[in-house]
Design a protein around this nucleic acid. Structure first.
Lengths: 415, 415
DNA sequence: TATACTTTTTAAAATAATTTAAAAAGTGCT
DNA sequence: AGCACTTTTTAAATTATTTTAAAAAGTATA
């Protein structure tokens, strides 16, 4: 009888090879041996097994660095697939990517209201199942389903305390049961943060604060190279820190929150009021436009040089800068990334933010943090969701099923 | 010829056993096997070797939990010693403890001004050397010298950018060279934090914020179970976050810093002014008293029920509470510990802090963080220093020398 | 008080992983 | 073009670690 432990042990190394190659695209046997701190023969053996099993493939020879040219290995993209879901309060996007992070079809976007919608969860599950069915990918080839959503989220336990009420049951367990694939959930800002750290402007930075500028102001924190979510999963609740002594009333019931002073929603409100008051601007506005339309219009106008729009954004930027000063003092990060929807006016925000940092930061601290603007755009959350799945690939047993299945299939075919 | 690798490999396990026993006092072979994730035979072999080498000893049998009683092992206290140094701006304490954390003599306290004192470093080295010489402990039995000091400190590189100018050379390397033992330095607040997490009220908490209430306001952060110091070692610069719109002028040159509004030094200043203005209080004061004497007097008076002193501290407490609200929003810690000198009036500060948290925190967040008062007192920093040394015991090669020496001695004696 | 069931520890066997050595495949200089 | 030097890969030998099995020392219960 074959020992179970041997399979598990050898699967451990194989999983970490797969994970590593997902992030680093292509590596030689020697590279893998070094980064995984395993001997070359061990890695070599695992690689040839993985190739036989269809997870890896040879990619060709890399240029020599003064000796024999290394044979590079990469993941077989069609070996497994990742389902990525990005939700906001109004709509949900679904996408499936292969192991090279390439989408296998167009992103599907559906209306799905989270607020006061008891059917939201059922609908979400239906959408996901429909999408997977339509893709034609069998369930056992899906590494996992990652779902990014707003709200107070406990990733470890799988709960969202704000939306998608699941009647006390774990969201991840429930959805996994109904879809037949492992499920991970996370806060949208967290996902944007890991996307920026793995594939964005903060690549390989160990301590990064990613600001999710949108209708609210989110914060995703990378601490010691890992996503930090705090003791109960609520860390990064940046938008409700008490920042202004007698500020505007916030939706949370308190006064002076950052969100109530500097979010894109507030900028939109101010724009509407300003135009009513007769400000000169290229912005047009009818009372029926939802704030989001106005918000997008402002950002576009600002990028086209509209002075009123730039003024409004600068004002918000300065306030965000004050909040970032606090963040820098506490966290001393390597970089701060402006991401999310608001990133498209990142360059306009940069100046007032810097100005605020100069005023509110100890120079030594301000100097040691870099301010960056995201280049990932709207895709950040979907990318982050895929990262979330692969980050857990070696830690969790959920995925072990895939390799174990493969192994048992092999055995069967041999008999 | 004996393979060098074998010694290193086996030393790795041995080091982690020593480290573990330092923190957990006494464990059985089975316990160690479980926590270190090594097989029982491996651990068993390492233990018997460590006993032979004089590092471990049998402590007796623990009560059975339903089977054979486990034989408990603990460290041989006299096997090695740790030198702990705690500095503040005016004075320096030196102490040596054994592996059971027991002081081997009285703590020595010396005047040593850090500010504008070019001789400070030389004096420090002399004091340490004198202390070690007086103790009679040979240098090769010293695991390390840990030094806690105020200022901007980069522990990894061994620099203090505020005090003890070493002309571009690493402080740790310099002192190690002159004392003949490995040296580690860290910020005082960081040390208090790790002391609280390993041996204090926040024992085994993974995410803890420790407030060092003193003449300034420091912050030591434990994140994911480890001390967090940020990208360049400056994280936790809590006392200079911009908190009040038009606050008092701070020593850092800015306005509205927490430190300028709520440190014990400020409380002392206000007390002096208040008495001048005719406030009724048990406090007596002459103009020549240094602020520190006044500060201590206020804390004592407050604990004895003096209303004016309590009022002053409450005011400071409320402001600290507002700052803690920000910290909770960002970090969502398991607990916040009030430590440092100010901890003796912790109970008085608790009420106004809670009040501020209720006002400025989202309830869900406030609820998930526990407010604790330190019980370690004045010793926290010295304990933290010892922890610092032992935390690095398995990571670093500095200590390997000890076990290697032991090994080569053994060999010599056999020849 | 004997029996069934625990848990810890020791010893022997099996297996996994690393080290060492050697071969293969290049680079760069004379 | 050939030689010295690199780096990567493969193969064999060695070493380390784990698993398995068994013994030792207790507890709880019928």
């Amino acid at each position: 009888m074959e020992s179970k432990t041997r399979i598990v042990k050898s699967a451990e190394l194989k999983n970490s090879i797969i994970k590593r190659l997902y992030f680093d695209k292509a590596l030689s046997c020697a590279d893998l041996s070094e980064v995984l701190e395993k001997s070359v023969p061990s890695v070599s053996k695992a690689i040839s097994e993985l190739i036989e099993e269809g997870f890896l493939m040879e990619q060709g020879y890399a240029p020599s660095s003064g000796g024999r040219r290394p044979l590079m290995y990469c993941l077989q993209p069609s070996a497994m697939y990742i389902v990525t879901v990005a939700m906001d309060q109004l709509s949900t996007r679904i996408q499936m990517v292969d192991l090279h992070n390439q989408p296998i079809a167009e992103t599907v976007m559906t209306e799905l209201k989270l607020f006061h919608n008891p059917n939201a969860l059922t609908l979400l599950i239906d959408y996901i199942n429909d999408y997977i069915d339509a893709s034609g990918v069998p369930r056992d080839k899906i590494v996992g389903i990652g779902i990014g959503m707003p709200g107070f989220i406990d990733s470890a336990k799988g709960f969202n305390y704000t939306y998608l009420d699941s009647d006390g049951q774990s969201l991840t367990e429930l959805i996994a049961e109904k879809t037949g694939a492992p499920v991970y959930i996370a806060n949208d800002s967290s996902l944007i943060a890991i996307a920026e750290q793995k594939f964005g402007v903060a690549k390989n930075h160990n301590d990064v604060m990613v600001i999710n500028l949108g209708w609210g102001i989110g914060l995703g924190m990378i601490v010691n190279g890992e996503l930090y979510r705090g003791h109960s999963g609520f860390a990064g609740e940046f938008s409700h820190i008490p920042l202004f002594d007698d500020g505007a009333l916030c939706t949370c019931g308190k006064r002076g929150c950052l969100e109530a002073e500097a979010s894109m929603l507030v900028v939109a409100e101010k724009a509407i009021q300003g135009i009513k008051d007769g400000h000169i601007s290229s912005l047009k506005h009818t009372d029926k436009d939802p704030y989001k339309v106005v918000g997008n219009a402002i950002m576009e106008a600002a990028n086209n040089g509209d002075q009123f729009a730039i003024e409004l954004l600068s004002d918000a930027g300065y306030k965000i800068g004050k909040a970032l000063a606090i963040l820098i003092h506490i966290m001393n990060p390597e970089s701060i990334v402006l991401s999310g929807r608001g990133a498209i006016v990142g360059k306009i925000l940069l100046a007032p933010i810097q100005q605020a940092l100069t005023k509110y930061c100890i120079p030594r601290l301000a100097k040691s943090t870099e301010l960056l603007i995201s280049e990932l755009g709207f895709n950040a959350e979907l990318i982050g969701t895929a990262v979330l799945i692969m980050e857990n690939f070696d830690k969790d047993n959920k995925n072990q099923s895939i390799i174990n299945k493969q192994l048992s299939m092999e055995k069967t075919s041999k008999n």
